[in-house]
């Protein structure tokens, strides 16, 4: 086949590069969602640990009294 004219070839070239960028963007978005979930769980865990420490502290004070 003869070489396509620039205006027609441009659409194919742009299409190929856009596919690559979209693929990359989807992957990065999924990874960002995963990291957000980890961050949220970490926050919950920190709250849980603080809550438990508070309860232990209260128990200790009650026993001392």
């Amino acid at each position: 086949m003869p070489a396509l004219p620039l205006d027609e070839a441009g659409k194919y070239v742009a299409g190929a590069y856009v596919v690559f960028v979209v693929l990359l963007a989807v992957y990065v978005a999924i990874m960002a969602a995963k990291l957000q979930r980890i961050e949220r769980e970490l926050r919950e865990l920190a709250r849980f640990a603080e809550q438990r420490n508070g309860e232990r502290e209260r128990e200790r004070v009650t026993t001392d009294v």
């Binding site: 980890i38 865990l45 438990r52």
Partner: peptide, 28 residues
């Protein structure tokens, strides 16, 4: 870079699970 990013996320997730077990916290 992407391999390293995914390994980092997996490592963080694994450490989080270990921490949850150590604290005896309820599962999410």
């Amino acid at each position: 870079t992407l391999v390293k990013l995914e390994l980092t996320a997996k490592s963080a997730s694994g450490q989080l699970k270990r921490l949850r077990r150590a604290l005896d916290a309820p599962a999410p």
